[in-house]
Structure formats: C-alpha cells, structure tokens
C-alpha cells in the first residue's frame, strides 16, 4: 500500500507534526478508490438478482390482475399503433397483453401512476376490451402511510372492488358504505386520499389508453419467444 510507506515516518513520537497536504490527499484518494471498488463490486454482484426480482414482481402482478393468463408480451405505442416489443425495459408508453395457454388473446394489463399521499403511486390493472371490465388491480409501488394508506393493497375488501368492475364511465371513490352506483368504489376509512388516488390513476390511464387500444379482434398475436429462436437458427 502506498500510504504505508508514507506513514511509516509518522511514528508516535512524530505525531504532533502536521502531515503534509499530499498525505491528506493521498489518504482520501486511496480510501475513495477502495470504497469505489467495493461499491462497484457489490453493485455488479447483486445487479442480476435485483433485475430478476423486479421482473418477477411485474410478471406476478400481471398474472394477478388478469385471470387465466399464461403468456404475456409487451406492447409499445409508437406511430399511433401498438407494436410488440421484446426488450427488457419498461416505460410509460408500454402495456402488457395477456394470452391464455392456446395463445388466444384475453386482455390488457395497463399501468398508471400519479403522486400519492407521500410518493408516486404506481398501479397495474387488468382490462378486458370485450366488455370494458376491469379485472383486477395491483399496486406496484407506493409509499403510503403504513397502517392507513397502505390498505390500498393490504385491504382485500378494497382490492376486490376492482375485480370485474365495469368501466363504462369514470369510476368514483365514495365514503365507505355509501356505494350505490356500479361505477362507485367504497373508499377505505381513514385512507380516503389514497383510495381516491387509485381511482384517479385508473381513470387517467383509461382515458389515455382506450383510444389507443386496437380494434377488438385485431389484437396483436402472441409472438412466442420460442418461435423467434427457431427463426433465428
């Protein structure tokens, strides 16, 4: 180590001497370098696992909000049409299409986000274009108050209100127990703001995506990755 040579002169007896500025700089630089190497090492070691975790979480969420789905692929909205993408990345202009085991199209899983009570709330919901029903809702990311706002994904009564919810007009969150219309959602007591945010995100995403979705019957066919591999070889 470089510093060892330099510091060997600073024997306890010489400790009162002021160290030269080069020594200060070198010790900071060496520490910074070692720290950098360690941080990069741990980043590279965990990168694959972290990426895998995130992908698995997203995949599980899609399977949760869309019933009976066994295959899925990503659709990207470019040049006014939906195209199938195979890349790993995910952005706001992408949704998922779900297919059953015979590769028949079932529905879409659409994501949306909006500022929540504390941080951005990120939601995924399943949507059947055949009857305009929402089939389920999952919260991908949120930092709502533990014990109150986090009920938007922990309170199963609330989550199940988004199963088979007809989406003919905007949905609305109302005080718990006062739901009378089919487009109304019973909000969570003590977490009205978080409940309203969920509803708002779904309304916004619905408005954004409805005109973009392809005509019924002309949904993009499932492009199995296996098929692709065969073609390439």
């Amino acid at each position: 180590m470089n510093t060892a040579n330099i510091t060997s002169s600073t024997h306890p007896s010489a400790q009162n001497q002021e160290p030269g500025s080069s020594r200060l700089v070198i010790s900071m630089a060496v520490a910074g370098f070692i720290s950098g190497v360690i941080i990069i090492a741990i980043y590279m070691l965990t990168f694959d696992t972290i990426k895998e975790n995130k992908a698995r979480e997203l995949r599980e969420a899609v399977f949760r909000v869309l019933p009976d789905v066994s295959h899925m692929q990503k659709l990207h909205f470019v040049d006014n049409k939906m195209v199938v993408v195979k890349s790993d990345g995910m952005d706001d202009e992408m949704i998922f299409a779900g297919y059953d085991k015979d590769a028949k199209f079932i529905g879409y899983a659409i994501q949306g986000k909006a500022p929540g009570f504390q941080d951005t709330v990120h939601i995924l919901y399943g949507y059947l274009s055949s009857n305009s029903n929402i089939t389920g809702m999952a919260v991908l990311e949120s930092r709502e108050t533990p014990g109150l706002g986090d009920k938007i994904f922990k309170d199963m009564d609330f989550v199940s209100e988004f199963i088979n919810l007809p989406m003919h007009k905007d949905i609305k969150a109302v005080k718990k127990g006062t739901k009378t219309q089919e487009n109304e959602i019973d909000a969570i007591t003590g977490a009205t703001i978080s409940s309203k945010i969920v509803v708002k995100i779904i309304n916004q995403a619905f408005k954004k995506w409805s005109p973009r979705l392809p005509q019924q019957g002309s949904e993009p066919a499932l492009e199995l990755s296996e098929v692709k591999v065969v073609k390439e070889s």
Partner: peptide, 26 residues
Amino acid sequence: QWIPKQVRISLYVIIIATFVTVVDYS
C-alpha cells in the same frame, strides 16, 4: 494510525457509506 486527524471525519463517512451501500444492495 493511517488516518490523518484533519480528514478523519470524511474518511469515517467514506467507510460508513461504503458499508451502507453494501447493505442497501444486499
């Protein structure tokens, strides 16, 4: 012995921050 006292706080913070990053990623 190798930590000059003038820059010790920054060095401690570098050491602590490195381990915190390790914990964070793990």
